[in-house]
Design a protein around this nucleic acid. Structure first.
Lengths: 190, 190
DNA sequence: GAATCTACTTAAGATATATTAAGAAATGAT
DNA sequence: ATCATTTCTTAATATATCTTAAGTAGATTC
C-alpha cells in the first residue's frame, strides 16, 4: 500500500522514504464491499481518496429519478468530488463501489498540513490536477461532439474490460444513452 | 497590467511587489485584433496566456469541415491548450480573438523558471487548475445531460452579454446544435 | 447606390435517439 | 434446482435534432 503511494508520487516528484512515511501516516485505509458508498449525495466530500484497488462509479439522481453516471474511478486515480471538497458544499453526486475496493483516504485538514510540511506536494498535485484536466478535456472531445455509437466504440477501445466489469445499463448511462439504444448499437455491430 | 496580475495572484497566494515584478519580467504583452490567432491547429502551444481584456474562442475543424467551438475565454482566464502545452504535442484546436484582445504571455520555459524561483507559484497554479477542473465539471453537468434548450438558457443566464458579443452561429456551435435549430429554440421562447 | 456577402430565419423532410411495453436471459436467493 | 429479481433485448411509436433549401435583412465592397 505504501509502495503504491511511493510509486505513484515518484512519477511527479522525488520523495524520500521519510516523506512517504509522513504522507502515509496521514492517510487511512478504507475497504468497501460491492455497493458500499464512499460518498453520498448531500454530504460534503471531506477527503481525497486514492484508489488502490477496485472500481467505483460517480452518479447523481436526476429529476426523473434516474441514476446518471458521470465518471468511473479505477486504480491510481484520485476519487473526489472536487467541487464539494474545495468549496465544502454538499456533493451533488454519490460515489459507490462496483467491486470490492480499497482506498487510501486523506482528509482535507491532513492534506493542508502535508502541503505545509512537504511543499513539493503542491507541485505533485499541480501536475496531477493538470493531467486530470487534460483527461476530462479529451473525454469532452468525444462526448460532446460524437454520436452515441462513436462514444460506445471509443469506450470499448480505450477500456475493453469495462464491458465485462460494468453492467451494460451503467455503461449506457455513462455514455448518455438509454440501455435499449445501446442494445441496438451492439446488435448492429455484429 | 502588472496590477491585474497582482490582483489575480493575490486571490491565491501572497506575493511581494518584487515577486510580482519577477513574474512580470517573464511575460510578454501580446495584442490581437479581431480575427487574429493566438494559436493555430497543428502548432505546439508554447505559452500560457493570461487574458487581460477581450474575448477568444477555441475551435477545431471537424471531418466535414465545420468549425466546432468548444470554449470561450474571457478576462482573467488562462488561455492554453493544456494537452499541447504539457505534452508538447500539436494542438488539435485553434484559438482566435473575437474582439480586440490583450494577453500576458508566459512561455513554458519561463514558467518552469518561475516555479523554481517562486515555489509558491506551484500552490497558486495548483489551486487555479483545481478551479478550472471544477468549472469544466460543472459545464459537463449541463452539456452532457441536458437538452439543447436547457443548454441555451443556461448560457444566457450565466453570461447574458454573450448573445451580444458573439454571433449566434458561434453560440450554436458552442452549444453543439445547428444554427437553424438554435433559431427555432429562440423563436419558441417568445 | 447597386451588388455581394454574411448572418439569421423558416419550413419540409430525414435521422438519431428516447419511450413504452413485452418477453428472454442471466443472476441471486431460498 | 426452483423461484424471484435484475438485466438485457426487441420492436413499435414518439420526439429531438439535423439537413437541405429557400428567403430575408443587414453589412461590406465596388
Amino acid at each position: 500500500m505504501k509502495e503504491s503511494l511511493k510509486n505513484y508520487f515518484n512519477k511527479y516528484i522525488n520523495l524520500s522514504d521519510e516523506e512517504i512515511e509522513i504522507i502515509y501516516q496521514n492517510t487511512d485505509v478504507t475497504k468497501l464491499n460491492k455497493k458500499e458508498f464512499l460518498l453520498k449525495e448531500g454530504k460534503i466530500c471531506e477527503s481525497k481518496y486514492f484508489l488502490i484497488e477496485g472500481l467505483v462509479r460517480f452518479f447523481e439522481i436526476d429529476n426523473n429519478g434516474n441514476e446518471n453516471i458521470n465518471q468511473f474511478g479505477i486504480e491510481n486515480w484520485w476519487i473526489t468530488d472536487l467541487d464539494s471538497f474545495i468549496n465544502e458544499t454538499p456533493s451533488r453526486q454519490s460515489v459507490q463501489a462496483l467491486e470490492k475496493t480499497i482506498v487510501l483516504q486523506i482528509s482535507k485538514s491532513n492534506l493542508e498540513k502535508l502541503y505545509i510540511s512537504i511543499p513539493k506536494l503542491e507541485r505533485a498535485f499541480r501536475i496531477i490536477t493538470e493531467n486530470m484536466l487534460i483527461a476530462i478535456q479529451r473525454k469532452d472531445e468525444v462526448y460532446m461532439k460524437k454520436t452515441s455509437k462513436d462514444r460506445y466504440y471509443n469506450l470499448v477501445e480505450k477500456i475493453p474490460d469495462f464491458t465485462q466489469r460494468v453492467p451494460q445499463y451503467m455503461i449506457a448511462s455513462y455514455l448518455n444513452i438509454t440501455p435499449e439504444y445501446l442494445s441496438e448499437i451492439r446488435k448492429k455491430s455484429n
